[in-house]
Design a protein around this nucleic acid. Sequence first.
DNA 1: ACCTTTGTAGAACACCGTTCTACGTTACTG
DNA 2: CAGTAACGTAGAACGGTGTTCTACAAAGGT
Lengths: 198, 198
Amino acid sequence: MTDVSATGGRTPSRAVEQALVDAAERVLVRDGLGGLTVRAVAAEAAVAPMGVYNRFGNKDGLVAAVLARGFEGLRAATADAADADPVDRLLTCGRNYRRFALDHPQHYGAMFGAGWAAAVPTEELVDRANAAFQALVDRVGYAVDRGALRPGDPVDTAQLIWSSVHGAVSLELAGLGRTADPAASYEALLQMLLDGLR
Amino acid sequence: MTDVSATGGRTPSRAVEQALVDAAERVLVRDGLGGLTVRAVAAEAAVAPMGVYNRFGNKDGLVAAVLARGFEGLRAATADAADADPVDRLLTCGRNYRRFALDHPQHYGAMFGAGWAAAVPTEELVDRANAAFQALVDRVGYAVDRGALRPGDPVDTAQLIWSSVHGAVSLELAGLGRTADPAASYEALLQMLLDGLR
DNA sequence: ACCTTTGTAGAACACCGTTCTACGTTACTG
DNA sequence: CAGTAACGTAGAACGGTGTTCTACAAAGGT
């Protein structure tokens, strides 16, 4: 459907597509989700607003592409925890998750905030999100296999960890943290998870 | 500032204010956050759009009033756990939290979704949110005093619980749950929290 | 070389939050 | 009981949004 090269027509250069997503990311970081308008992105990419509709269908398609990149970044950030010790690997994974959210708050908010449940998610978006989640499932399985975590369905366990970690990061980003030191509270959360799932 | 009766002028009947918030809640439930427009609310309340600005300043003031009601509802839902056993009281509190979110998904999404960190929160809104959180802190303190939870700052512990519970509910509402039975996963989360904080 | 196809540009439409201006309606004042 | 000043209201209007429409220019196939 979106594969234009299959029609035999001229390749739509594909570079403009990436330029639009790049521009959208810059606008998102600079002006927040509220400032992410079709006109602003098109102007940032030096393209007519119509280009967004030619390549992404509508605004949702564009933000879906941006969100897909966000999930890819989240996957990369949490997947590069290569510690040999399974507990260390999980801890690094959890710390990288928070670091990603704090480094890219606009992305994170858009990825999990409003507008997700509303708009029907793109297939690519779902794939990226699943890949990011799978990275966590793998690390949980690694820990279970080595006896660092109690046996059980890795998916269930990963979902449980994800819930807690996402909640903590989400509340911290929203400014709803009531603790003095968010970083210390987050470490305590990770430790509690390890204790509770031991 | 908003206390009109102090000026000696005619009382703005106050009923219209509530009628507007009532209408806003109906529109929110019916059409979602995206359909919550000033015109739609005004029409639902049989009032001119200008009434919103006279009584709430702008749209954010109106949604802040709706969100304040939402936090009051959340506080009421989680505070009516009167079990004698401290563990049961915490469990009931956690279950009621999820029930509130599932019963009022639009409210919950608006309360913790985008638009919170962006708009400057009203004082009443902060008060309601703090009251809801305090209900949890009280229950944690109750459990700590009776030895059901390990000693520690009740605020830190409550924040930790809130993070996990909010994360689970938030992901479930967003449709990002990857487990077969969300209710069972939530129960497992609560149990894990009790284990980890024992 | 022609023609079809395709992306582009800019105006245009409906809707949004918000503001402005004219207009009752109400409550205080002499 | 007038007169007046303040106040909330109604409706149009402004800038901005997502989206669509219509004409136009450029590239590929025959």
